[in-house]
Structures are given as structure tokens and as C-alpha cells.
Write a protein that binds this DNA or RNA. Structure first.
Lengths: 113, 113
DNA sequence: CTTCATGCGTAGATAGACTACGTGTCGGTT
DNA sequence: AACCGACACGTAGTCTATCTACGCATGAAG
């Protein structure tokens, strides 16, 4: 999948993966890849700047730790981030409903949690 | 809605509106606005270049006509365009399913045609 | 005659993700 | 011991697609 199409929806995805628990950058990339069956294989040059944007915006906070001699920066959602996520979720639903109206809204209902 | 988020999906939308019949540029804009309840209000500077892209790609063909002393350029889907639309549709479904898996895939099923 | 809706079009700005680098550790292979 | 791949972070510059802001022209309405 062309991640090109992610334009404007990446922040929402990042907030969403962090909703289920704090992760460090590399793990976020793997989480996105895993939960999308490999469709979303985003390069570090996309993820790290995005995370810093989110941190500057106050939606996440980061903290360093050392694991196996490797420096990790772990990101965690803030309250502001949780609110932002709710907004992004809403925006996504409106967006996908609108586009779906043109391209066929029959998105096969993937099994919910 | 920020049309910003359309990035990469605009061509699909254009092909989709043309699927139901040939239209000229201005009418395409109105069709998008109408069928989206005003959510998609795209400026001419977005539409016209996009249509020319599609024409260069062979997905649409245009023809001039004069109506009420006004020059109109009417666009029509080609076979290639129809095939492209099928692909875009497929791509959209995969995309929205993937993103939906993270943001909640519960897109309310809007009534089909 | 001025203004608004219709209708086409281009040039330059802007935004957001991408490519291509660069740094360093750890573990396994040769 | 040298090397290479996985882990883990990060930045600079490019690229693509949409947007903003124009410009031109006709017809109808005030």
C-alpha cells in the first residue's frame, strides 16, 4: 500500500497504537506492521519526526531508558493526546464515510475486538 | 473537512463521479459537493489539474462544446479509466480497512444505491 | 454598468510523507 | 578477529499532490 495515501492520517494511527500502551519508536513501527499484516511498513524517517511533532503538540510524552545497552525513547499518550485521538477518530469516520459514498461504502466489516 | 486528507484519493473520486456519466469540470465540482453534503468543496485549482493528469494518463477523454455561449470541456471515462477506477476502489477498500483496524472500523453503513 | 454565477485555466506556496544518510550497540557467523 | 544483520535513534533534503491566489471571458440581474 502506498503510504502516500496516509497523508493526514498518520498522527491518528500513532495515537491509536499508543492508546493500548506506551511503546518506543521502533516498537511502534513493528506494531503498525504487525497489526496491518505488513501493509503499513513505515520508515523511521516518517515515524520519528511525526512523534516529535506529537510531543511538541503535547499529545505524547517521551522518556529515555536503556535496555540491553540500547537507548530507547518510550512514548506515552497524554490526556490531550487521548482527546486528540477521539477527534481524529471522529474525523476519520466522517472522511471514510464521505469517500466511501463515492467508492462504495461496502467495507467488509473486519471482526471487532 | 480538510481536503488535505484526500491526498492520493482524489483521482478515485473523480473517476467515480464520471462513472455515472460524462460531466464538465464545473459540474464535477458541484457533483462532489452535492453528493457529500458539502463536505467536499474543492477549488478549481485542484480539479482542473487533476483532470488533465487523468487525461494524460488516458483514463478520461475530453471534448469541447458550447452551451449558452460558454465553452465547456466535458470529460468522459475511458475503458482504461474504468479499469483504473476498479483498482482505485480496491485500493480504497484495503486502505480504509487497514486504517479502520486502528481507528475503529465501525463505519456506519450508509444506505447503498 | 457593476456584480454575481458560470466556466476555463495557470503559477507559486504549502504540507506531509519519503529517500538517503549518519551514529552506535549487540549477537551470531565465518 | 572481522563482518554483518537486527536493534534503535535521528536529521536533511526531496518529492508529490493539494491549496491559494490569480487571470480571462460570457450572460443575467440589479
Amino acid at each position: 500500500m502506498k503510504a502516500q495515501s496516509l497523508h493526514g492520517h498518520l498522527d491518528a494511527l500513532l495515537l491509536a497504537v499508543l492508546e493500548q500502551g506506551a511503546l518506543h519508536g521502533y516498537a511502534i513501527i513493528e506494531a503498525l506492521r504487525a497489526r496491518s499484516d505488513g501493509s503499513l511498513d513505515l520508515p523511521t524517517g516518517t515515524i520519528y519526526p511525526a512523534l516529535r511533532r506529537l510531543e511538541r503538540a503535547g499529545h505524547v510524552i517521551s522518556s529515555w531508558s536503556t535496555v540491553n545497552g540500547r537507548e530507547r525513547r518510550t512514548y506515552e499518550l497524554t490526556d490531550s493526546g487521548r482527546r486528540a485521538l477521539a477527534g481524529e477518530r471522529d474525523g476519520w469516520h466522517r472522511f471514510s464515510a464521505t469517500v466511501g459514498r463515492f467508492l462504495g461504502s461496502d467495507t467488509p466489516p473486519s471482526a471487532p475486538a
